[in-house]
Design a protein around this nucleic acid. Structure first.
Ligand code: FES
Ligand code: FES
Lengths: 151, 151
DNA sequence: TATAATTCGGACAAAAAACTCTTTAGGAGT
DNA sequence: ACTCCTAAAGAGTTTTTTGTCCGAATTATA
């Protein structure tokens, strides 16, 4: 309803990394397995997040990815601006090029307040808090494996 | 941020048809030109909306598409359930297969209230009202043509 | 120094979404 | 009956997104 698969993988991975001890690199393979997403594809996404400054990467033995220092409090909004592009929040719901009060589609004045709520929500959630929530065990980052479902 | 291009075209076209005199078929060609959208592609979308019961179509001279009788008050939610599929509102923002209180991702309890707002908004907007808004001339369905932009 | 483990980078492949072309069939006017 | 105008249908193309593969570079450790 809102996010590309790439963004979903990125967010899941970042939260997962944030749940792990800071400073200890996490293996791409482990993240992919844990989240049940394609490892090679996830690697690309993580590499891109490195280039964009959210992650640090280390090659060779004891290598892996970890959150760059000071990025614990990165908001989901910041992440999505990287993965969805800088116009993420700027678009008209009907797809018009410009979305502004003086150039409005018929849904504009209903949509804008809702959009503001979405943006506020994305800005107030950060990786550290989400990771903390996951560590309580009450929330999950990936689907239940089929094996765990009732027969 | 929320809708596929197909859905955007569908909604734009339906609103445009609703602005036209009821019972008089509107040409696909005219809709496409007015919305500045690929005609052949739009035709497919309209055909699909016919099959799904929102529109009536007529071939030959004086042919075209018009809203099926009684569909003037169709809500955007109903339209999007057709164009985006019946799971449109059911998805988890992180992409998990199940989105429910007892199987929640870490964003679930923040996301669900916002999602409810989106759904409420989509349910309360219907084609007739949107068309009326467009007829006032204050709102638009398509981008300003490049020719109309300041040089 | 050799080895194993890891990311990096680029090319490639598959799938989905967006869009086009061409032919057929149906309906209105003459 | 004929012609013109329209949507219907289906195959095909292009573009974007998602996903794979492989070889090279980098690093810890034995
Ligand atoms: S112009 Fe369409 S949402 Fe603002
Ligand atoms: S489980 Fe993720 S939004 Fe409900």
């Amino acid at each position: 309803m809102v996010l590309s698969r790439t963004s979903q993988y990125a967010v899941q991975a970042l939260i997962y990394i944030a749940t792990q001890p800071a400073g200890e690199p996490v293996l791409n393979r482990d993240i992919a397995e844990r989240l049940n997403v394609p490892a090679a594809y996830l690697a690309k996404i993580l590499q891109s997040l490195c280039k964009q400054g959210l992650l640090d990467s280390f090659r060779g033995r004891l290598g892996g990815f970890c959150l760059r220092d000071g990025m614990q409090k990165t908001s989901l909004m910041q992440v999505l601006l990287l993965t969805e592009g800088p116009d993420f929040t700027k678009s008209c719901i009907l797809g018009l090029k410009e979305c502004s009060d003086h150039s409005a589609c018929p849904m504009h004045f209903k949509w804008v307040p809702v959009k503001k709520k979405i943006i506020a929500m994305l800005q107030e959630m950060n990786l550290e808090e989400l990771a903390k929530a996951v560590r309580t065990g009450k929330y999950r980052l990936a689907d239940l494996p089929a094996a765990a479902l009732p027969a």
